[in-house]
């Protein structure tokens, strides 16, 4: 009798992977679920919206300029008669693409440096001093300087839009990897002393396989949490750059650029500021909530309680 119960229990346990537990814990965090829903909604809207809402974001209809919300233009039009909804979709594509790519770049750089510094003792000191130096750089001023100085060169090399995209993703990426590197290094240092790693080393596993099979899967959870923070950070930084007039050009809308352009008409059409601002804020908020939920879900001390 007891045996049967025991085996049944074992079977259900065996079928569950760690990610099932993580998902179960994640589901209990209401904010995180809402955030996830909203982020998916924004992604779908930005990338599939233009197929439903067929007005071109660049189409100038000067006779329909400065209109309020109507059936033809649900969110109104701007000073050149461009449709705000279409521009929000187009801006969302760029902002989200910048956010996700820059995050991926920062994350790979941070993970690479963190794993190398943690795993190879000889390189640890040098790499961590390097990280500290980067942390001591004034990031926003430097970002502004880099973009101002290299904008024209990259524009001529890759064309106006791709050039700026590459530049912005690159500068955001290389200025936000440090936190990830530090967290990953700390975790790798702790992992290195664990028995399974020592056992694996004792049978002669080469370092590259050690890292890819044993170290990386175990530092995945802090990396995932910093991924969400990275997206939020990159979206805010890109919007800030665009807002300061040093991001994408005006005919290539991003949320930050739309907000910046709307502030010129703040006195007459204050409501125009609202949409891009809300889009940035809610997206960042939702991503931060996902991060919060993930952190709880991936923490084994909290999970299962």
């Amino acid at each position: 009798m007891t045996d049967r119960v025991q085996t049944g229990f074992e079977e259900t346990r065996a079928a569950r992977s760690q990610w099932h537990d993580v998902w179960d814990q994640f589901k209990t965090h209401r904010g995180a679920l809402l955030g996830m829903g909203f982020f998916v909604f924004v992604l779908v809207a930005a990338f599939l919206g233009p197929y439903v809402w067929l007005i071109d974001a660049q189409y100038i209809d000067i006779r329909a300029r400065n209109q309020g919300p109507s059936l033809a233009h649900p969110l109104g039009t701007d000073q050149l008669g461009r449709d705000t909804l279409a521009r929000l979709f187009a801006g969302g594509q760029v902002s989200l693409a910048v956010g996700i790519t820059a995050m991926a770049l920062a994350l790979s750089l941070g993970t690479l440096i963190g794993v190398i510094a943690g795993y190879f003792k000889r390189l640890d000191g040098a790499l961590m001093r390097f990280t500290d130096l980067f942390l001591a750089l004034p990031l926003l001023p430097l970002l502004l300087v880099i973009i101002m100085l290299f904008r024209d060169t990259l524009r001529t090399a890759f064309g106006p839009e791709t050039g700026i995209f590459i530049l912005i993703v690159f500068v955001i990426g290389i200025t936000s990897w440090m936190q990830t590197a530090r967290i990953v290094r700390g975790d790798v240092l702790a992992l290195k002393e664990r028995d399974f790693v020592i056992a694996s080393r004792s049978i002669g596993t080469p370092p590259h396989r050690m890292i890819s099979r044993h170290i990386l899967p175990n530092v995945l959870s802090p990396i995932m949490v910093s991924a969400t923070l990275g997206i939020a950070n990159a979206i805010i930084t890109e919007s800030a750059l665009s807002f300061l007039g040093l991001g994408f050009p005006s005919d290539f809308p991003t949320w930050g650029r739309l907000l910046f352009d709307s502030t010129d008409h703040l006195q007459q059409y204050p409501e125009r500021v609202l949409w891009p601002g809300l889009a940035i804020s809610l997206t960042v908020l939702s991503v931060n909530y996902i991060g919060d939920g993930l952190r709880d879900a991936l923490d084994p001390r909290i999970r299962g309680r």
């Binding site: 800030a240 930050g256 500021v273 940035i280 804020s281 960042v284 908020l285 909530y289």
Partner: peptide
Amino acid sequence: MVGFSVPTFF
């Protein structure tokens, strides 16, 4: 959460 998600320029 709202405070540090909503950028100061907004």
